[in-house]
């Protein structure tokens, strides 16, 4: 058993290869070939290659990447909806890869639920029966599961739609049903596979707010797959960026925007309004000679945009404080250049 160190999900050296002779690839020298060559030599696609990550309990962990980068495959591997080719997976201390089919079912029934991009609702059942489906699978008696399903129905704001068929609902409502179904089993971990990419922007905003609210209220650990950067930044406490099946960078939104690991990530985050993501920590600098240090103080975690009102109220440089200690200063010019995307003069970016 892998020591999980209190993590909700622990993944090590995970591989998923599609194609003939898939299980041989991870342990051979083929593993190091670039994707195109691998496909040419063996006809295999490495959808997930050597992924290692750990998700803390209660965290919202976002997986991001372009289409085809292996995000869906990665989350499906977590509960073995797709059988991994190699690697270790631990969920709340349980070794998933060693689990028997019965243990795996228990895991899926009680601990990990999933929300799908295309909802995966059962068209021949009403909304309430769809929500209760997971409980039905578990063998919960009818009266109890209906009661529970009704609770969830109002939690996701669909009162009055209990008997509607899924195909009479709008996309946003369908995904609420999918969400309610996943929540009905009171899982410890929720997996989302691009849950909102089929929805239009306004409804997407709503649903994101919904997820944030649920996370606040219920505190479930979430793994959230998306290819939408603004969604990732809005929801994610930490973000993993995938390319060609591997993770190219894993960090907080600030770290990704502030220090992109390579050109790929940099291209990804180029259009992010830096002033809204980065905090003062990233742009503060050592005071110049003769600069006054009696200006207003702000915590180093303050987002740049939020420092604007303070800067407007004074002409003095702002003192940036971390753990009660001054770590540097920023003046109006620094703030402006950071927000406009021009190179800053600060030392923090080094």
């Amino acid at each position: 058993m892998v020591p999980s160190g209190g993590a909700a999900i622990e993944v090590r050296g995970l591989w998923k290869i599609f194609g003939p002779g898939a299980d041989r690839v991870p342990h051979s020298s083929l593993a190091r070939l670039p994707p195109a060559l691998l496909r040419e030599r063996t006809g295999c696609v490495a959808a997930v290659r050597d992924v290692t990550l750990s998700v803390r309990p209660g965290e919202v962990f976002v997986v991001m990447g372009l289409s085809g980068s292996g995000k869906s495959t990665l989350v499906r591997c977590l509960t073995r909806l797709v059988e991994p080719s190699a690697g270790e997976i631990t969920i709340a201390g349980q070794d998933v890869r060693a689990a028997t089919p019965a243990q795996l079912r228990q895991l899926r029934r009680h601990r990990v639920s999933m929300v799908f991009q295309h909802f995966g609702l059962l068209p021949h059942r009403g909304v309430l029966d769809n929500i209760a489906y997971g409980l039905e699978i578990q063998g919960v008696p009818r009266a109890r599961r209906r009661r529970r399903a009704e609770e969830l129905l109002s939690l996701v704001g669909l009162d009055g739609f209990a008997d509607a068929r899924p195909d009479t609902l709008s996309g946003g409502m369908r995904q609420r049903v999918g969400l309610a179904r996943a929540l009905a089993c009171e899982p410890e971990v929720l997996l989302f596979d691009e849950p909102f990419s089929a929805l239009d922007p306004l409804i997407r905003r709503d649903m994101q707010a919904e997820v944030t609210r649920l996370h606040r209220e219920v505190g479930t650990t979430m793994v959230f797959v998306t290819h939408d950067l603004s969604e990732a930044l809005r929801l994610g406490e930490r973000i993993a960026i995938m390319r060609d099946g591997g993770i190219v960078q894993l960090g907080t939104p600030e770290e990704l925007v502030g220090t992109p690991a390579d050109g790929h990530v940099a291209a990804f985050v180029r259009d992010v309004p830096r002033g809204e993501v980065l905090s003062l920590r990233w742009i503060c600098r050592r005071p110049r000679d003769g600069e006054r240090l009696d200006g207003p103080a702000l915590a180093s975690g303050t987002v740049i945009r939020d420092a604007v009102p303070t800067a407007m109220g004074t002409a003095l440089p702002i003192v940036v404080v971390e753990n009660g200690r001054a770590v540097g200063v920023v003046d109006r010019l620094d703030l402006l250049s950071a927000m406009s995307g021009l190179p800053t003069t600060g030392a923090g970016r080094a």
């Binding site: 509960t79 895991l107 899926r108 295309h118 995966g120 059962l122 068209p123 489906y133 699978i137 179904r181």
Partner: peptide, 12 residues
């Protein structure tokens, strides 16, 4: 997708 959803909820 319906089949996968069912499997993801632990159906036999």
């Amino acid at each position: 997708s319906a089949v996968e959803a069912s499997a993801s909820l632990g159906a036999t």
